Simulated scan of single mutants.
Amino acid sequence: MKILTFTTLFPNLVRPNNAIFVETRLRHLVASGQVEARVVAPVPWFPFTDKRFGQYGDFARVPASEERFGLPVLHPRYPVIPKVGMNFAPALLANAAKATVGRMLDEGYDFDLIDAHYFYPDGVAAVKLGKHFNKPVVITARGSDISLIPNFAKPRKMIQWAAANAAAVITVCDALKTELVQLGADPATITPLRNGVDLQRFHQGDRAGLRREIGLDGFTLLSVGHLVELKGHDLAIGALPLLPGVTLLIAGSGVELPRLQALARELKVEERVRFLGAVPQPELPRYYGAADALVLASSREGWANVLLESMACGTPVVASRVWGTPEVVAAPAAGVLMRERSRQGVADAVQALRADYPAHDDTRRYAEQFSWDSTTAGQLRLFNAIVRK
Results as ranks from 00 to 15, higher is better:
I3E: 02
L4W: 00
N12P: 06
L13I: 06
V14D: 03
V14I: 15
P16V: 02
P16R: 01
I20R: 14
F21S: 05
E23Y: 09
L29H: 05
G33A: 11
A37M: 07
V40A: 01
F48H: 14
F48G: 03
D50L: 14
D50T: 05
F53M: 06
G57T: 02
G57W: 02
D58Q: 13
A60D: 10
A60G: 08
P72M: 06
L74H: 09
L74Q: 11
F88I: 13
A91W: 14
A94R: 05
M104R: 01
D106C: 00
D110I: 00
Y120R: 03
P121E: 05
D122N: 13
G130P: 07
F133R: 03
K135W: 01
P136E: 07
S144P: 07
L148E: 15
I149C: 04
N151F: 09
F152C: 07
R156Q: 14
I159T: 02
I159Q: 04
Q160M: 11
A163P: 09
A167V: 02
I170C: 03
T171Y: 03
V172I: 14
L180I: 11
A185F: 02
P187Q: 14
A188P: 08
T191K: 13
R194K: 12
G196A: 02
F202A: 07
Q204H: 04
R211M: 06
L216G: 07
L222P: 14
L222D: 12
S223R: 10
L227R: 08
H233S: 14
G238K: 12
P241Q: 08
G245P: 13
T247Q: 15
P258Q: 08
P258T: 07
A262G: 12
A264I: 09
E270H: 13
E271V: 08
E271P: 09
F275G: 09
F275E: 11
E283D: 15
R286D: 13
R300C: 12
R300T: 15
W303C: 10
L307F: 03
L308K: 05
G314R: 03
P316W: 01
A319M: 10
W323N: 15
A333E: 15
L337E: 12
M338L: 05
S342C: 03
R343L: 07
V346M: 07
V346P: 07
A347Q: 02
D348Y: 00
A349I: 01
D356C: 09
A367F: 00
S371K: 01
L380P: 10
F383V: 00
N384M: 08
N384W: 06
